[in-house]
Each structure stands twice: as C-alpha cells, then as structure tokens.
Design a protein around this nucleic acid. Structure first.
Length: 140
DNA sequence: GCCAACGTTGGC
DNA sequence: GCCAACGTTGGC
C-alpha cells in the first residue's frame, strides 16, 4: 500500500464535505498539474492518504482512502486531466499543523515541508507513522 | 494582502 | 529549444 497527501482549501472543498459524501466518496477533481496528476495515476484502490487544509488552516485533519483509481476528470474539458475518487476514513484526534511538521525532525524530508505548491503528494510509510502518532490515531 | 516559488505559455 | 512574461498557489 502506498500513502499520499491531498491538499484543499477548506473554502473550496473541506474535510466536512468529504465526510458528508460517506462511503461513496467523491472525485478529487480540479487538479491541473502534471506532477499531481501523475501521482493520482500511480494510486491503487485502497491506498491511504492524508487530507490537508491549505492556506487558512494549514493542518492535516484526517485520513482518506482511494475508492476509485484514476479516470478522466468529469469537470475537465481536456481528457488529459484525470483524478481518483476518495472517501473519508476517520478524522485525527488532534489536527497536525504545518508548524508541527516543520518542527518534527523526522519529517524534515517531507514534500509538504519542502514543496508547498504540490497539491497531491506522496508520503513515505515512516512519515505516515509519525503523522498518525502526532494526530493521535492508529496508522493502520 | 503581499510576495516568493513554481508551472505554463508563447514568441523568437 | 530557450527563456521572458504571466498566472496561480499557498505560507507568512
């Protein structure tokens, strides 16, 4: 299983909206960046990801799961843009802020810390474990 | 609200 | 194929 991180501004698409979609999940549409798209193409059914609120909150708020592999983005007029579907799994006990990630030595190589612009990122198993620990939730 | 970093576009 | 100009993202 691989791990990922999905970024969204809460004003545009929030964790609460994701939770409201339940088991059906929702398309992670709107990505118009090749690196982010390629990351989604690499995702497999059942892969886990973090849900991060960018801009205002700057914190990881919960765990999501890939429930449909990459397919054309239904909201794009260009078929080269693809996306996966994700569903909410569970929230963190404590949101993990960007500041916490920057202060944690074990996360200094994290993409979130070093390339804040990439909206869909890979997360290593080690980083996954550390962030679940900080968030007060089970990593599995 | 500002601006640095990054990605994309398009003229040459 | 290079690179300047432009647009967008996201931390601060």
């Amino acid at each position: 299983m691989n791990y990922w991180l999905f970024k969204s501004e809460a004003e545009v698409w929030s964790w609460d909206q994701q939770v409201a979609k339940g088991e059906a999940g929702e398309e992670w549409d709107g990505v118009r960046n090749y690196q982010a798209r390629n990351n989604m193409r690499a995702m497999k059914l059942g892969d886990r990801g973090f849900f991060y609120h960018s801009r205002a909150e700057k914190e990881i708020v919960g765990i999501v799961e890939v429930c449909a592999e990459a397919h054309p983005d239904s909201k794009a007029d260009d078929p080269r843009w693809e996306c996966v579907d994700i569903k909410a799994v569970r929230p963190f006990q404590t949101p993990v802020t960007l500041t916490m990630c920057k202060e944690e030595p074990r996360l200094k190589e994290m993409v979130l810390v070093n390339n804040s612009r990439l909206s869909v990122q890979p997360v290593t198993p080690e980083e996954w474990a550390v962030i679940c620990e900080l968030g007060g939730t089970d990593p599995s």
